[in-house]
């Protein structure tokens, strides 16, 4: 693929990711039961032929709820990571190209922002802005923009010192041209791997927020919220607590092993 040999762990990771992508898109067609429907009198029921992942604290089908939760978790996280990386890479390239005061001011500002612990930042922001879905996306994007900025900027600064960029500059090319045609193509590989890692961080933070009851609000439920609402089943070892966590783990670990085993040419951060 892309002229590279793809190693087996990467392939497994990719298959898991593709599967979750399909689930996220087609969830309403795949669920055996409606997510809000109470299908069984037995709460925290075990996995059976009828209810593959058991039942939750109200007797709803856990399998259906996890499939629909994939939409919420992956949707919010993808939107947030896209915003964060686009903003971070855009500003990072701008800072590298402009240099000087703009660069140092922006870098200082983002350094200060990123010195606030993520969870704490999220708690304070949720306290201020509430936990509607657009707000959650904005908060998550804001928290992970500084890291993306710093990463893209350090790459762009290196490219900016290359002869061909200096020549393009002397030709009188515009900033937009320099960013789009000279810098971006050369930092794209590492930026995409950074996108993947940042996606994992966002999934974890979103799940943690929802687990605390401060993220996605009912009736919608992401995977973190599913763990929270079923935490009462923990003493019985109910599948309703364990399986949503496993869903998160399968997603984040799949991204990690896919990226870790990518050919060095794509992933090399010092590019």
């Amino acid at each position: 693929m892309f002229g590279f040999r793809v190693p087996l762990p990467s392939l497994i990771g990719l298959v898991v990711l593709l599967a979750w992508a399909v689930v996220a898109i087609a969830a309403p067609l795949l669920v055996p039961y409606s997510v809000g429907e109470i299908v069984d009198f037995d709460i925290f029921g075990p996995a059976t032929d009828q209810f593959w992942f058991g039942t939750d604290y109200l007797g709803r089908d856990v399998f259906s709820r996890i499939l629909m939760g994939a939409r919420v978790t992956i949707g919010i996280s993808l939107a947030a990571v896209t915003l964060a990386v686009v903003a971070g890479v855009g500003l990072g390239m701008l800072a590298a190209l402009l240099g000087g005061k703009f660069d140092s001011l922006l870098s200082r500002f983002f350094d200060a922002l990123s010195s606030i612990p993520n969870k704490l930042f999220a708690l304070v922001a949720v306290a201020g802005g509430g936990s509607s879905i657009p707000m959650l996306i904005a908060i998550l994007a804001l928290i992970y923009t500084p890291g993306s900025y710093r990463f893209a900027r350090s790459l762009a600064v290196n490219i900016n010192a290359m002869d061909y960029v200096i020549v393009a500059r002397l030709r009188g090319e515009s900033f937009f041209y320099l960013a789009r045609a000279e810098i971006l193509p050369n930092i794209l590989g590492p930026v995409l791997t950074d996108f993947g890692l940042r996606f994992v961080f966002i999934v974890l933070l979103l799940s943690s927020l929802s687990f605390l009851g401060l993220g996605v609000q009912p009736p919608l439920a992401d995977w973190g919220a599913l763990v929270r609402e079923n935490i009462g089943g923990l003493p019985f070892g109910a599948p309703a607590v364990i399986l949503p966590s496993l869903a998160i783990a399968s997603l984040t670990i799949a991204v990690n092993i896919t990226i870790d085993n990518l050919p060095r040419k794509i992933r090399d951060r010092s590019a």
Binding site: L234, S245, I253
Partner: peptide
Amino acid sequence: AVISVPEFMTATLAVLFFSV
């Protein structure tokens, strides 16, 4: 593995293992 999963999962698995 511990780093790639949320903290609440590590904690719930620990409870499951040691307590349950």
